[in-house]
Design a protein around this nucleic acid. Structure first.
Lengths: 189, 189
DNA sequence: TCCTGTCGCTAGCACCGCTAGCAATCAAGT
DNA sequence: ACTTGATTGCTAGCGGTGCTAGCGACAGGA
């Protein structure tokens, strides 16, 4: 009996997170309100607040889901190739596709939540997994003496910069690949 | 008399924008409310709404101010050097410093407002000016046949990616320069 | 002097994030 | 078996939000 209650509670918590993700992807994060989420999860607001500290905590949970999904996407892309250079290119493309297909998820991961520990050791596992996938794709390209972590961060920043400016309408989408090509060919001189 | 009224109205509009910027820089955009802005500008809310379509429009006005300021900062950096390569490096550093010193302004420019036309011909002059400054620093580095606009966009995306991840706590600030160095030395292979 | 139109104000709507305080339900003790 | 204690979810409400309707004051023309 006790365990059933706990199971039902956990299930409702899951419902809240998936509802947040669904509403955000369908109507944007402005449409995500605690009232709306409680309604979608068929419970009252205080129940939501018993699971999460606040609205931001729900968004953080969605963000963690997003990192988990990004990790699996990147892993699949890397494993679909054999050459190191192809692997990095595939990971680049997978990142771009992810950002294009899941803009609301990216908002949660990179814009909304500030409370997630990132560069720390207690960062969520999904987050470390996503970063690890990128690192594995970047590492073979490192030269001797390079700090691979730093190189991975840099690569991440580049992909994020292009994707985020495109996602917010600052850059036109169609030339994305040409920009990446320019980047690869141009930043040594 | 008629002109005095118009002058006073324009002055109050300016007051609202500067209040928004001041509050955002001091306490973050969450503290920027229409009531707060009307209070700071010593008028009522409907007056604010007679000047701006809504809260987002005020943020957009602040963002345009931000682009104007960024343009002057980049211009000063570029003009302080003579060699083309030094100029690009100076512009890079100026961009980073701007992002670090004016985080709230960057939020308005890159995160909050989506209604500003960017890649279009009717983009605000300040915005085109900032982009033009970056273009002038990037252009000398272009190879034959390069699309300079595209190259500028790419450079902008890189700077933005690094700055935005750092600003939101995703990257640790201290290694920023080393990341830029890695970037410049590594992305051709 | 009266009228007309412009202007800014007060007051209020619907909604937000969040919480206090109560009713219902279950586990355990006598 | 009945009470007791705690746990759980609910209704109702607080202060605050973006935004607007509708009214009163004031300038300019007849």
């Amino acid at each position: 009996m006790r365990t059933r209650r706990e199971r039902e509670r956990a299930e409702r918590k899951r419902l809240i997170v998936t509802a947040a993700r669904r509403v955000a992807e369908a109507e944007g994060w402005n449409a995500v309100t605690t009232r709306r989420l409680s309604a979608e999860a068929e419970c009252s607001q205080p129940v939501l607040y018993s699971h999460f500290k606040g609205k931001e905590a729900v968004a953080a949970a969605v963000a963690v889901q997003g990192f988990a999904e990004l990790a699996t996407v990147l892993r699949a892309a890397r494993r679909g190739t054999h050459d190191d250079r192809d692997a990095l290119a595939a990971v680049r493309e997978a990142y771009t596709r992810f950002a294009r297909r899941r803009p609301a998820l990216c908002d949660a991961m990179f814009t909304l939540t500030v409370d997630l520990p990132f560069a720390a050791a207690d960062a969520p596992a999904a987050l470390q997994a996503a970063f690890g996938e990128l690192r594995q794709a970047v590492a073979p390209m490192a030269a001797d003496g390079d700090d691979i972590g730093l190189l991975t961060e840099t690569c991440w920043a580049v992909l994020h910069g292009l994707a985020s400016l495109t996602r917010n309408g600052r850059l036109l989408e169609k030339a994305h690949d040409r920009r990446l090509t320019l980047l690869v060919s141009h930043f040594a001189a």
